[in-house]
Nucleic acid binder design. Sequence first.
DNA 1: ATGAAAGCGCTAACAA
DNA 2: TTGTTAGCGCTTTCAT
Lengths: 354, 354
Amino acid sequence: MTTIYDVARRAGVSPATVSRVLNGRASVDPDMAARVRQAAQDLDYRPNAVARSLRRSRTSLWAVIISDIGNPFFTSMVRGVEDVAQEAGFSVVLCNGDEDPEKEARYVAAALAERMAGVIISSSGRPALISRLVQARIPVVAIDRQPRGVEVDTVLVDNTHGAEQATAHLVGSGYRRIACITGPRRISTAMQRLRGYQRALKASGRQTTEDLIRYADFREEGGYRAMASLLETAEPPDAVFAANNLMTVGALECLVDNGIGVPDPFGIVGFDDIPWAHLVRPSLSTVAQPTYDLGRTAATLLVERIADPAKAPSTVVLHTELRVRESSAPSAGRQGPAAGRTRSRGTAAGSLRS
Amino acid sequence: MTTIYDVARRAGVSPATVSRVLNGRASVDPDMAARVRQAAQDLDYRPNAVARSLRRSRTSLWAVIISDIGNPFFTSMVRGVEDVAQEAGFSVVLCNGDEDPEKEARYVAAALAERMAGVIISSSGRPALISRLVQARIPVVAIDRQPRGVEVDTVLVDNTHGAEQATAHLVGSGYRRIACITGPRRISTAMQRLRGYQRALKASGRQTTEDLIRYADFREEGGYRAMASLLETAEPPDAVFAANNLMTVGALECLVDNGIGVPDPFGIVGFDDIPWAHLVRPSLSTVAQPTYDLGRTAATLLVERIADPAKAPSTVVLHTELRVRESSAPSAGRQGPAAGRTRSRGTAAGSLRS
DNA sequence: ATGAAAGCGCTAACAA
DNA sequence: TTGTTAGCGCTTTCAT
């Protein structure tokens, strides 16, 4: 590998000058600069970022640790992060936590060891991981999921409200026994969405009973099993609110496999939009999140945090949007085709990429 | 940040000994080792991977540059890579090329600058990028897409055969004018799948005419537009083979929007499986790839290449599997349910995660 | 404006 | 077995 010394020798200058030219910081004689650039090009010189990072005690890499790369929810979020990062001169690498606290811990360790410039994390595990980053003075932004007991910049959506709206919609559609499949108790989104569900039921004057609630794992199979378990009860539900996209799909599969009609007699609404929701049979009603903006916002907070590590942490909450499609509209067949594409007004999802 | 010197001082030994203990390489007095470990723990010492990489002139990070993070095809592939990488002691970071040669170039530059231990790349752009890595002696494995004019380890599927099978299936189902929506000309998979389509038509004694072929961009919108353009021709097709999953969805959307029945009168088969293909209406016939094994195989090749940089590059071809569902079976309604799950024999897809 | 030299934190010769 | 020391490639004072 050619080093800065090789370039310096060829250009007849000192390594320091080469560094100055390549970083464009200090002022250098134009002729010299040209010679240096020419030499660098001749030698196909590539700066060694490892050495630079060591010397500067900081890198230009961000780690984005997402909780499940198989979940389409994260993909447009990542694009939002990338777009902002690039403007600010950072490169983004993705790490797949895979809803596995151990895997996640490994990636946090890697981010720590590599002295990453910043971390955006959707944590499936213990808040201790995030504390570790904070203690090591690595700028962190929590995204999607609120870590307990750690004060960091956070970007969330109005989970409770979205879940409440979805559940209220099921109530309004005439379903009577509405169940809820939520995620692991340790994850904030699971609990907030459960709370929204409970609030909507209470608001409609119904009891919320534990036997209509299932705590699954935010994955497709978990949703399937939870649905199956709900159907086995003495008094099965006639509708379900599922707290994320993959579990919604799993629940729907379970209903299909059991020959239960959706939306009639059984209604279903899920949190998180899924791609091709309108191509699925029946098309799925969902609570959509402004995923791209979620990413942009987190990245913006990270840039600010890096610029000013001392500033007070802030939390940004973006809005969800209920998208009513067929799976929750028992009379959909009798309505016009427009019924499948209802949208609520003004939402942060405006910049969501299609 | 605490350094190895801090630990050494606290344990009353030299930095070299600390390094030896922490790396477990050389033999160290057990008592001393214990003291060192204790000191490291007391100080919450975290090795600086940047310094280590600089000193050793090699890192333990792999970059996996995928061409579109929004494509579910890549997600289980990444899991395959991760599983092998972890066994071999490497961490994997993902980079989203996003079907954008410029973005991809930036990530290649980053991999180069960071002196990554290895790169697995599904390139959407110029082979020059891969050459650059090779010239810099960075071990590279090409995955999914065959780079032109560069000799590197490569993992592919039998694109031509898969496409031929899919097209022959459409022929066998009784469709008469079968179109093809493929990807950009510069991408090997696009051209190979096109060739398979052409072969199947020729084998059935038909002409392959350019007016039934569209070159789109491997994205959903591109598939939609290509389908629309096919429908506008004087003599529109009555079936289509789409060369990847996202374009298949786009094409299907276009058909739905135009009120054209699938599979009757219009048939459709796509390359790449999609999640929930069986929940989509109508369920999509696809050519499935062994994505997880694709990742595992690439990672294994990379491990071998790192161990022996001089060994001759090899190319591994895995097998695809035609999954016939509703979208290509005009008489499916009259057949038993078994018809929807036909599988070809012996395929590498055996270990594909569901 | 430019160069000399120190040092980021670690590992690996080499010496003891 | 352990310690001393040099140096990975770069940036950044500090002199000039």
